[in-house]
Amino acid sequence: MSEYKSIFADGLWRNNVVLGQSLALCPLLAVTSNATNGLGLGLATLFVMVFANLIASLMKNTVTRAIRIPVNILLIATLVTVTDLLLNAYLHDLHKVLGLFIPLIVTNCAILGRVESFASRNSLVPAMADGLAMGLGFTVVLTGMGAIREILGSGTLFANASLLLGPHFEFLEVTVIPDYRGFLILILPPGGFMVLSFILAAQKKIQAVAKRRAEKQTTTGGEQCA
Protein backbone atom coordinates (compact mmCIF):
# COMPACT_ATOMS: atom_id res chain seq x y z
CA MET A 1 0.00 0.00 0.00
CA SER A 2 2.86 2.38 0.74
CA GLU A 3 4.10 1.92 -2.83
CA TYR A 4 0.74 2.96 -4.29
CA LYS A 5 0.42 5.87 -1.86
CA SER A 6 3.79 7.11 -3.08
CA ILE A 7 2.75 6.68 -6.72
CA PHE A 8 -0.41 8.74 -6.24
CA ALA A 9 1.38 11.34 -4.11
CA ASP A 10 3.89 11.80 -6.95
CA GLY A 11 1.24 12.00 -9.65
CA LEU A 12 -1.11 14.33 -7.84
CA TRP A 13 1.38 16.57 -6.05
CA ARG A 14 5.11 15.91 -5.66
CA ASN A 15 5.92 15.05 -9.28
CA ASN A 16 2.81 16.44 -10.96
CA VAL A 17 3.12 16.73 -14.75
CA VAL A 18 2.66 20.52 -14.60
CA LEU A 19 3.54 21.56 -11.06
CA GLY A 20 6.53 19.27 -10.60
CA GLN A 21 7.82 18.61 -14.13
CA SER A 22 6.67 21.78 -15.97
CA LEU A 23 5.55 19.70 -18.96
CA ALA A 24 2.52 20.03 -21.29
CA LEU A 25 2.40 23.79 -20.79
CA CYS A 26 1.31 24.47 -24.38
CA PRO A 27 -2.08 22.70 -24.15
CA LEU A 28 -2.40 23.78 -20.52
CA LEU A 29 -2.28 27.48 -21.41
CA ALA A 30 -4.22 27.14 -24.66
CA VAL A 31 -7.32 25.15 -23.70
CA THR A 32 -7.94 26.23 -20.11
CA SER A 33 -9.99 29.32 -20.96
CA ASN A 34 -12.81 27.43 -19.24
CA ALA A 35 -13.13 24.37 -17.00
CA THR A 36 -15.04 22.29 -19.57
CA ASN A 37 -12.19 22.37 -22.09
CA GLY A 38 -9.65 21.55 -19.39
CA LEU A 39 -11.69 18.58 -18.18
CA GLY A 40 -12.17 17.27 -21.73
CA LEU A 41 -8.48 17.38 -22.64
CA GLY A 42 -7.51 16.05 -19.22
CA LEU A 43 -9.73 12.99 -19.55
CA ALA A 44 -8.44 12.33 -23.08
CA THR A 45 -4.84 12.49 -21.80
CA LEU A 46 -5.74 10.29 -18.82
CA PHE A 47 -7.12 7.62 -21.17
CA VAL A 48 -3.93 7.63 -23.24
CA MET A 49 -1.62 7.53 -20.20
CA VAL A 50 -3.38 4.62 -18.51
CA PHE A 51 -3.55 2.41 -21.59
CA ALA A 52 -0.06 3.36 -22.77
CA ASN A 53 1.36 2.30 -19.40
CA LEU A 54 -0.75 -0.85 -19.41
CA ILE A 55 0.39 -2.02 -22.87
CA ALA A 56 4.01 -0.97 -22.32
CA SER A 57 4.12 -3.01 -19.12
CA LEU A 58 2.72 -6.06 -20.92
CA MET A 59 5.33 -5.70 -23.67
CA LYS A 60 8.33 -5.02 -21.43
CA ASN A 61 9.69 -8.57 -21.75
CA THR A 62 9.19 -8.84 -25.52
CA VAL A 63 10.47 -5.46 -26.75
CA THR A 64 14.23 -5.07 -26.70
CA ARG A 65 15.85 -1.96 -25.27
CA ALA A 66 17.23 -0.94 -28.68
CA ILE A 67 13.77 -0.42 -30.19
CA ARG A 68 11.76 0.36 -27.04
CA ILE A 69 11.48 4.12 -27.57
CA PRO A 70 10.25 3.89 -31.22
CA VAL A 71 7.77 1.20 -30.20
CA ASN A 72 6.51 3.33 -27.31
CA ILE A 73 6.07 6.34 -29.59
CA LEU A 74 4.12 4.21 -32.05
CA LEU A 75 1.99 2.87 -29.18
CA ILE A 76 1.18 6.38 -27.91
CA ALA A 77 0.42 7.63 -31.43
CA THR A 78 -2.00 4.73 -31.96
CA LEU A 79 -3.83 5.42 -28.71
CA VAL A 80 -4.04 9.14 -29.48
CA THR A 81 -5.49 8.37 -32.91
CA VAL A 82 -8.11 6.13 -31.32
CA THR A 83 -8.93 8.87 -28.79
CA ASP A 84 -9.17 11.47 -31.54
CA LEU A 85 -11.57 9.31 -33.57
CA LEU A 86 -13.73 8.53 -30.53
CA LEU A 87 -14.01 12.19 -29.57
CA ASN A 88 -14.85 13.12 -33.15
CA ALA A 89 -17.54 10.45 -33.27
CA TYR A 90 -19.20 10.85 -29.87
CA LEU A 91 -18.19 14.33 -28.61
CA HIS A 92 -17.87 16.21 -31.87
CA ASP A 93 -18.41 19.69 -30.37
CA LEU A 94 -15.63 19.13 -27.83
CA HIS A 95 -13.43 17.73 -30.58
CA LYS A 96 -13.89 20.93 -32.59
CA VAL A 97 -12.99 23.08 -29.59
CA LEU A 98 -9.86 21.13 -28.62
CA GLY A 99 -8.83 20.81 -32.25
CA LEU A 100 -5.11 20.33 -32.80
CA PHE A 101 -4.34 19.74 -29.14
CA ILE A 102 -5.74 16.20 -29.23
CA PRO A 103 -3.21 14.94 -31.84
CA LEU A 104 -0.52 16.88 -29.99
CA ILE A 105 -0.97 14.55 -27.01
CA VAL A 106 1.54 12.37 -28.91
CA THR A 107 4.23 14.98 -28.27
CA ASN A 108 3.44 15.23 -24.55
CA CYS A 109 6.77 14.33 -22.99
CA ALA A 110 5.08 13.32 -19.75
CA ILE A 111 3.40 10.32 -21.40
CA LEU A 112 6.52 9.03 -23.14
CA GLY A 113 8.56 9.74 -20.01
CA ARG A 114 6.31 7.66 -17.76
CA VAL A 115 6.06 4.83 -20.29
CA GLU A 116 9.83 4.75 -20.71
CA SER A 117 10.93 5.31 -17.10
CA PHE A 118 8.18 3.48 -15.18
CA ALA A 119 5.79 1.29 -17.17
CA SER A 120 8.55 -0.43 -19.16
CA ARG A 121 10.26 -1.43 -15.92
CA ASN A 122 7.35 -2.39 -13.67
CA SER A 123 4.55 -4.93 -13.49
CA LEU A 124 1.02 -4.32 -14.74
CA VAL A 125 -0.78 -2.98 -11.66
CA PRO A 126 1.86 -0.43 -10.57
CA ALA A 127 2.19 0.72 -14.19
CA MET A 128 -1.56 1.31 -14.48
CA ALA A 129 -1.57 3.06 -11.09
CA ASP A 130 1.22 5.37 -12.25
CA GLY A 131 -0.64 6.23 -15.47
CA LEU A 132 -3.82 6.86 -13.52
CA ALA A 133 -2.06 9.05 -10.94
CA MET A 134 -0.19 11.12 -13.51
CA GLY A 135 -3.30 11.47 -15.67
CA LEU A 136 -5.45 12.51 -12.72
CA GLY A 137 -2.86 15.03 -11.59
CA PHE A 138 -2.75 16.58 -15.06
CA THR A 139 -6.56 16.60 -15.29
CA VAL A 140 -6.91 18.28 -11.90
CA VAL A 141 -4.51 21.07 -12.87
CA LEU A 142 -6.16 21.56 -16.28
CA THR A 143 -9.65 21.68 -14.76
CA GLY A 144 -8.57 23.82 -11.83
CA MET A 145 -6.85 26.37 -14.03
CA GLY A 146 -9.83 26.43 -16.36
CA ALA A 147 -12.19 26.93 -13.41
CA ILE A 148 -10.19 29.84 -11.99
CA ARG A 149 -9.90 31.56 -15.36
CA GLU A 150 -13.57 30.99 -16.20
CA ILE A 151 -14.94 32.20 -12.85
CA LEU A 152 -12.81 35.34 -12.76
CA GLY A 153 -13.01 35.92 -16.50
CA SER A 154 -16.70 35.38 -17.19
CA GLY A 155 -18.41 34.55 -13.88
CA THR A 156 -19.45 31.03 -14.94
CA LEU A 157 -18.24 27.50 -14.25
CA PHE A 158 -18.30 24.59 -16.72
CA ALA A 159 -20.16 26.69 -19.28
CA ASN A 160 -21.56 24.64 -22.21
CA ALA A 161 -20.65 21.38 -20.48
CA SER A 162 -23.85 19.77 -21.75
CA LEU A 163 -23.01 20.76 -25.35
CA LEU A 164 -19.36 19.70 -25.27
CA LEU A 165 -19.44 16.66 -22.98
CA GLY A 166 -23.03 15.51 -23.45
CA PRO A 167 -26.40 16.14 -21.77
CA HIS A 168 -25.44 14.10 -18.68
CA PHE A 169 -22.99 16.87 -17.72
CA GLU A 170 -25.59 19.62 -17.62
CA PHE A 171 -25.53 19.56 -13.80
CA LEU A 172 -21.99 21.01 -13.89
CA GLU A 173 -23.09 24.29 -15.47
CA VAL A 174 -23.14 27.02 -12.81
CA THR A 175 -23.42 30.80 -12.92
CA VAL A 176 -21.08 31.77 -10.08
CA ILE A 177 -21.35 35.57 -10.39
CA PRO A 178 -24.69 36.73 -11.86
CA ASP A 179 -24.65 39.80 -14.13
CA TYR A 180 -20.84 39.73 -14.20
CA ARG A 181 -19.30 41.76 -17.01
CA GLY A 182 -16.13 39.69 -17.05
CA PHE A 183 -12.38 40.21 -16.80
CA LEU A 184 -11.31 39.52 -20.38
CA ILE A 185 -7.56 39.16 -19.88
CA LEU A 186 -8.01 36.04 -17.75
CA ILE A 187 -9.61 34.05 -20.56
CA LEU A 188 -6.93 35.19 -23.03
CA PRO A 189 -3.43 33.62 -23.23
CA PRO A 190 -1.83 36.16 -20.83
CA GLY A 191 -4.36 35.12 -18.22
CA GLY A 192 -3.11 31.55 -18.47
CA PHE A 193 0.42 32.63 -17.57
CA MET A 194 -0.88 34.76 -14.70
CA VAL A 195 -2.99 31.98 -13.15
CA LEU A 196 -0.26 29.36 -13.62
CA SER A 197 2.28 31.60 -11.87
CA PHE A 198 -0.02 32.02 -8.86
CA ILE A 199 -0.69 28.26 -8.70
CA LEU A 200 3.04 27.46 -8.79
CA ALA A 201 3.73 30.09 -6.14
CA ALA A 202 1.00 28.65 -3.92
CA GLN A 203 2.42 25.13 -4.32
CA LYS A 204 5.92 26.27 -3.36
CA LYS A 205 4.55 28.11 -0.33
CA ILE A 206 2.59 25.06 0.83
CA GLN A 207 5.65 22.83 0.39
CA ALA A 208 7.83 25.27 2.33
CA VAL A 209 5.35 25.46 5.22
CA ALA A 210 5.02 21.66 5.31
CA LYS A 211 8.79 21.28 5.33
CA ARG A 212 9.21 23.73 8.22
CA ARG A 213 6.52 21.94 10.23
CA ALA A 214 8.18 18.57 9.62
CA GLU A 215 11.57 19.93 10.67
CA LYS A 216 10.04 21.51 13.79
CA GLN A 217 8.34 18.24 14.76
CA THR A 218 11.61 16.34 14.21
CA THR A 219 13.53 18.82 16.36
CA THR A 220 10.88 18.75 19.11
CA GLY A 221 10.82 14.95 19.08
CA GLY A 222 14.60 14.82 19.34
CA GLU A 223 14.65 17.20 22.29
CA GLN A 224 11.97 15.18 24.11
CA CYS A 225 13.95 11.98 23.59
CA ALA A 226 17.09 13.68 24.89
Rank of each mutant, 00 (worst) to 15 (best):
S6M: 10
V18N: 00
A159E: 06
V174T: 14
T139W: 10
L104G: 02
L46F: 09
L87Q: 10
T107K: 12
F8D: 08
A44D: 03
V80T: 08
L86T: 11
T45W: 00
Y90W: 15
P126E: 05
A127C: 06
S120I: 01
L12M: 13
K211T: 12
F118T: 04
A44T: 05
T143K: 01
A161W: 01
M59R: 07
L19E: 05
V50I: 15
L165Q: 03
T175L: 09
A202D: 04
A208V: 10
A159D: 04
A110S: 15
Y4W: 12
V174L: 08
D84A: 10
M134A: 10
L86H: 13
I73F: 15
C26S: 13
Y180S: 06
L164R: 03
Y90Q: 09
E150F: 04
N15V: 12
M1N: 08
A127F: 01
G153C: 01
E170Q: 12
K205Q: 12
Q203S: 13
H92Q: 11
L75I: 03
A133W: 01
G155D: 03
L165P: 07
P190H: 05
I185L: 14
I177P: 07
A119D: 02
A226D: 07
T139K: 03
N15E: 15
R212V: 14
V115Y: 00
N108V: 08
L85T: 14
V195F: 02
R121A: 13
K211I: 06
L188W: 07
L75P: 01
R213I: 15
L19Y: 07
M134Q: 06
D130S: 05
S57R: 01
M49T: 05
S6E: 11
T219L: 13
T45F: 04
L163R: 11
R65N: 09
Y4D: 11
L85V: 15
L124K: 03
W13T: 00
M194E: 05
V125G: 09
E223F: 13
L188H: 10
L112Y: 09
I7K: 04
L142H: 08
V209G: 10
N88L: 09
V63R: 04
I67D: 07
N72Q: 13
T143W: 02
L165G: 09
G42M: 00
A129H: 04
Y4A: 08
M134W: 00
P189E: 12
K96W: 06
S197N: 10
G40I: 08
L104R: 02
V17Q: 04
E170G: 13
S123P: 03
F193C: 11
T45N: 15
D10W: 06
D130H: 03
S120C: 09
A77Y: 14
V80F: 08
A127G: 06
I206G: 08
M128Q: 00
A208F: 15
S2W: 06
Y180A: 02
T64V: 14
L12T: 11
A52R: 03
L94E: 08
I199C: 03
